[in-house]
Design a protein around this nucleic acid. Structure first.
Length: 498
RNA sequence: GGUCUCGUGGCCGAGUGGCUAGGCAGUGGUCUGCAAAACCAUGUACAGCGGUUCGAAUCCGCUCGAGACCUCCA
């Protein structure tokens, strides 16, 4: 029997503001769309948090034995830097700054995006469509919205008529905004003369002569509006109505609001059952953002080359750090917090590694089945990874107690425990196994292990002779290299720390 | 200015009407040649002020503080 039939997953739905039991449209199948990045710059750690959050969702849904189709777009069409009529699109601007073709920019930063997410051990999505690959689909949607009378053309551009839409539907349903309030609070942007009303948003924009990314359309040469690509690609691959749509909190308004309006206007259907929004990663208490420069790059974490960092951290540690907070909470990044996460992480990994060497007993003083269900329960409660991690540390305590002879596990339970912890840590949380292994296993590292074993042997001989000067010298010099010796039950163990 | 969210012990961070969250750091102990690790023990925590309740960190109101969105952003 598939796991989803006996595990009741609840997801916080941004649309209703409540945790709701997940019921998929097609039994056993989930369609999930997540807004991807605009590839005009390197991804920063804040971007990564969102994609790691949805990777957790993707992984857990798969662990529940759902067949998941996960679609995440690449925005490679240039969009304007603000909602004004004039202006340069951000990809074209970056191309000018780097003296490259726009598509070279797109390629360069798409590759960067993939590499970084792979380093964090994210699964690739099932389909990763690009905006420029779906111009025809986008034009078709614009046509259908015009046919419904909910969009109008002006001077080669097409705008969505929010007021007209709001007569029969509710614009602002997702973000809790009212059109009247929006009208009253609109910032006075210049150059919005083409729109009937400031809330209207572009479905298609006329390309200025200097605009490099341009396509022919029934309304002339232009390019699609930013909100449109997600509607086009989500409906193409997941249908007019699908299960889950995710994205960063900052996309809730206006982007996702506009997607709902476009979807409803063109198909008449409510496009999404569950809206999920991942919260921001902050640095110095402020949202990380490319535009303000308040951000930190993943590679800076891995090298430690950033003024905010005292040392380098592995991708697995950074991922673990993020999963220690719930995806809907703001998480503040700091070196101190990362260090604390690292220590806990290695303690967890050390315990996991020790399970296979535990002494077995006739009876168990720990209910492994109940433990497994607690892990499921944590994840079933809106993907509560911090609670899952708290449970894992209960198991760490148990393992260490068994090792110390203060608790008992049968062989069967030890095997089961190893499987459960392994599943949740590596499959669900997506911790990269090789990065988490304190004692590395590659060839070079094996030689290191052999060398360390030899030194341990020498040291123990010195200790047996009460030559503590020699034994301490060996231990102290090894710790300086990051190799830590631990004397336990007459046997010396070691761990290599990065 | 408008809308919304949040304020938890030295730090990070769950929980959300009564039952120890967890991690890191600290303190005492066990073990050890000494360490380390591990185990055991250990914290006047829920921004402030009122209110509801037998009982509130948890619900309501106000005050203060922080953040997000309202313009491209994960």
């Amino acid at each position: 029997m598939p796991n989803y039939q006996h595990q009741a997953l609840k997801i916080y739905n941004s649309l209703t503001g409540e945790k709701e039991k997940l019921t998929s449209i097609t039994p056993g199948n989930i369609g999930m769309y997540v807004c991807g990045p605009t590839v005009y710059n390197k991804v920063h750690l804040g971007n990564c948090r969102t994609f790691i959050s949805f990777d957790l969702v993707f992984r857990y849904l798969k662990y529940l034995d759902y067949k998941v189709r996960y679609v995440r777009n690449i925005t490679d069409a240039g969009h304007l830097e603000n909602d004004a009529e004039e202006g340069e699109d951000r990809i074209a601007k970056k191309a000018r700054l780097e003296s490259l073709e726009p598509m070279e920019i797109v390629q360069k930063y798409t590759v960067d995006f993939h590499q970084i997410l792979a380093t964090f051990n994210n699964h690739p999505p099932s389909i990763e469509p690009t905006a420029t690959g779906h111009i025809i689909e986008q034009i078709e949607i614009v046509k259908s919205i015009i046919d419904k009378g909910l969009a109008y053309e002006f001077n080669g551009s097409v705008y969505f008529d929010v007021l007209k839409y709001n007569e029969t539907e509710e614009y602002g349903i997702l973000s809790g905004r009212k059109v009247e309030e929006l009208m009253a609070n609109t910032r006075d942007l210049t150059g919005q003369s083409e729109k009937k009303n400031p809330q209207d948003f572009a479905l298609w924009k006329k390309a200025e002569p200097q605009h490099i990314m341009r396509w022919p359309s029934p309304w002339g040469i232009g390019f699609p509006g930013w909100h449109l690509e997600c509607t086009a690609m989500s409906t193409k691959y997941l249908g007019n109505r699908f299960d889950i749509h995710g994205g960063g909190m900052d996309l809730k308004f206006p982007h996702h609001e506009c997607e709902i309006a476009q979807g409803k206007a063109s198909t008449g259907e409510e496009p999404v059952n569950f809206w999920m929004h991942a919260n921001m990663l902050t640095l110095n208490g402020k949202k990380m953002a490319k535009s303000t420069g308040n951000n930190i790059l993943p590679e800076e974490i891995f090298t430690g080359n950033n003024p905010n960092l005292s040392k380098a951290y592995s991708p697995a540690v950074a991922r673990f750090f993020m999963l220690q907070a719930h995806y809907r909470s703001v998480l503040d990044f700091s070196d101190e917090a990362l260090q604390a996460a690292e220590k806990g992480f290695y303690r967890l990994m050390e315990a996991y590694k020790n399970i296979s060497q535990l002494p077995f007993s006739e009876q168990s003083s720990f209910d492994v089945d109940a433990f497994e269900q607690k892990c499921f329960d944590a994840m079933n409660d809106d993907f509560n990874s911090p609670v899952l991690i708290a449970h894992l540390f209960d198991a760490v305590k148990l393992i260490n107690s068994v090792k110390a002879g203060k608790a008992e596990l049968t062989q069967k339970d030890a095997t089961k425990l190893e499987q459960v912890i392994g599943d949740f840590v590596f499959e669900v949380m997506g911790i990269h196994k090789n990065q988490s292994d304190v004692q590395q296993t590659s060839t070079g590292e094996t030689k290191v292990s052999e060398l360390v074993e030899m030194l341990i042997d020498l040291r123990n001989k010195a200790r047996a002779n009460k030559d503590f000067a020699t034994s301490d010298k060996i231990r102290n010099q090894l710790i300086e290299m990051g190799i830590e010796l631990k004397d336990a039950q007459g046997k010396t163990e070691f761990s290599i720390k990065s």
